[in-house]
Amino acid sequence: MQAFLISTGIVALAEIGDKTQLLAFILAARFRKPVPIILGIFVATIVNHAFAGALGAWVTSLVTPEILRWVLGVSFIAMAGWMLVPDKFDESEAKFAKLGVFGTTVVAFFLAEMGDKTQVATVALAAQYSSFFWVVAGTTLGMMIANAPAVLLGDRIAHRMPVRVVHGVAALIFVVLGVATLLGAGARLGF
């Protein structure tokens, strides 16, 4: 359950101001059909994060626990730095309109999420917690917590959200996770 809660919180914070959240705003403004957009985000996220979670689980089978601890600790600290870099969104990532609202959302969101902060975080979290299902469920819920309101409320919330503060909090959480991992907290706590 800890893997689920931490994955949900980290990804929900990391997604604020992320390029995929910007994509959610753009899709909502373009199509004005929130239900198929939200369903498309959900499907794309599950597929993308299931792949990322499987990759994280696979990595744990390749390296010793000691090496994994160092790789994950450094990765979490690197994610903290990455959180402080603002994302830019390329309009071409939302150009699949001939697929309909749902299809456009699935394809555009899946492609935008490839190599994104939240996907990389999912890989690291799955490796850290060795709990594929709970990590993927948590990161998917985190994405939905951040993106469903973006679709439903659009511009009304986009300019009121203190993105730098939210990213700062997320970066701090990643630093704490990284340092705790490097110090071996996960091994002592059983995850």
Rank of each mutant, 00 (worst) to 15 (best):
D155N: 14
K95H: 13
L172F: 07
V179D: 05
A121W: 00
G115T: 06
A124C: 10
E91A: 14
G186L: 05
I173A: 13
A127Y: 04
G168K: 00
G178W: 01
A121L: 11
V166G: 04
R156L: 15
A146K: 05
L153N: 01
D116N: 08
Q128G: 12
L84H: 03
G178L: 01
F174T: 00
D116S: 07
G138Q: 08
A150M: 07
T181M: 10
L111S: 08
I173L: 13
F132M: 15
T105W: 01
L172M: 08
A148G: 05
K117W: 10
E113T: 14
A137R: 13
A112M: 14
V135W: 02
T104P: 01
F89H: 10
T105Y: 04
L153G: 01
A121N: 04
V176F: 02
T118V: 05
K95D: 15
A127T: 02
G184P: 05
F109R: 02
R164A: 12
K117I: 11
K95M: 15
I157T: 06
A108Y: 01
H167T: 09
I173R: 04
G168F: 01
V135S: 04
G168Q: 01
A80I: 02
T104S: 13
A187K: 13
V120S: 11
L99Q: 09
I145A: 09
N147R: 04
L172A: 14
K117Q: 12
R164S: 14
F132D: 08
V101F: 09
F110L: 10
K88Q: 12
F96K: 13
F96S: 13
G81N: 03
A94L: 03
T105S: 09
V166H: 02
R164H: 08
F89N: 03
V120Q: 11
N147E: 05
D90G: 01
V123S: 11
D87C: 06
G142E: 07
P86Q: 10
M161F: 11
V179P: 03
G103W: 02
L177I: 00
A180Q: 10
T105D: 06
L182R: 02
T118F: 06
V165L: 14
Y129R: 05
G100P: 05
K88P: 02
T139H: 08
R164E: 15
L152Y: 07
W134S: 12
A158E: 15
V85S: 09
T104I: 11
F96M: 14
Q128R: 13
G154F: 00
